[in-house]
Design a protein around this nucleic acid. Structure first.
Lengths: 166, 166
DNA sequence: CCATTAAGGTGGACATGTCAACGAAAAGGT
DNA sequence: ACCTTTTCGTTGACATGTCCACCTTAATGG
């Protein structure tokens, strides 16, 4: 586990924080969000969480509230508020869920479908633009790597084992 | 306890959002931030942005305000507020910068150094824990891949060629 | 020199994200 | 059936992040 400090070149204005994996990913995530917001702002006033919800529903695999919420990766609280905002702005309507009275089904309006039709190609072009910045090898490896890191990020129990044994 | 089914394509309750790179990275970033906050909460009340600033300064490469701010990857506004919070809580002091009167130098107090000494090993262990979740191949390629994506995320000009109006 | 522009920091307004508590509905166990 | 536990959505409080207008200082160019 030697330090890969082969980077004599300082990155931006700072220095070699390139070694810090969580930091790099956070920075990348911030830039990706800004890029997505810039694209959304071109064609309307949808916010990023609003778009995420619409996109998930537009995929047509589910429109049950819990499934949409989990698929969009949004917190319960924020999901509730974002759905209400979407309703207020006429993007979705809700229908009581027959099988589970706690949940509801989300239905996209024409407005949402039109917004999706406009935005989806641009976001898809963005995805391709991003992928084209990677080599084939990197493309093959990035998704498993992200998944592995996500699982490793879900617990801090590795600290307990180390601290108590040392 | 939710069943952690070993499905490679269907992640949680949703479906194949595993193909959406920005979404995956955002989710990962969220989990990493939560993990870091959990570690910080164990040993004090430093917030994540506060820790980022202290860590950068503790590296000793610079303590000029602009360099610290850019190295920590924090917005101007949030940096100003976070620095003030650090001052109020006794973690840092500031000194006018002789070379540039607009800037200032940030000096860590004993309290910050002590917090850094406590936290740095745990965060380092976390970093190693994360890296150990990756194969050697993935470790070698993840940093260049992140960097490539970060650059590709800095612009939306790839859309201009396709859609110049609006 | 002075005027203009750029860069740095501050503060307010606002959007987004996180957390805890609550009541309603479903699921499980006896 | 009944009671308990879990899941779900909502709400409010709060932390974090973003954006913009403003002022000061530095750098640039007559």
């Amino acid at each position: 586990m030697t330090a890969q400090r082969d980077k004599t070149k300082l990155d931006s204005d700072g220095f070699d924080l390139s070694l810090l994996l969580p930091f790099q990913i956070t920075q990348l995530s911030t830039k990706l969000a800004a890029q997505a917001r810039a694209i959304l702002a071109r064609h309307g006033s949808l916010t990023l969480p609003q778009w995420r919800i619409i996109r998930v529903i537009a995929m047509g695999l589910t429109n049950r509230s819990t499934a949409v919420r989990k698929s969009s990766g949004i917190d319960k609280s924020q999901f509730s508020k974002t759905i209400n905002a979407l309703i207020d702005e006429g993007y979705v309507t809700t229908v009581p869920c027959s099988e589970d009275q706690r949940q509801f089904e989300v239905v996209l309006t024409e407005k949402a479908l039109a917004a999706h039709a406009r935005l989806a190609p641009e976001l898809e072009a963005r995805q391709q633009h991003l992928l084209s910045a990677l080599t084939q090898e990197q493309r093959d490896m990035i998704f498993p790597a992200i998944h592995a890191l996500a699982r490793a990020a879900e617990t801090i129990e590795f600290l307990n084992a180390q601290n108590t044994e040392d």
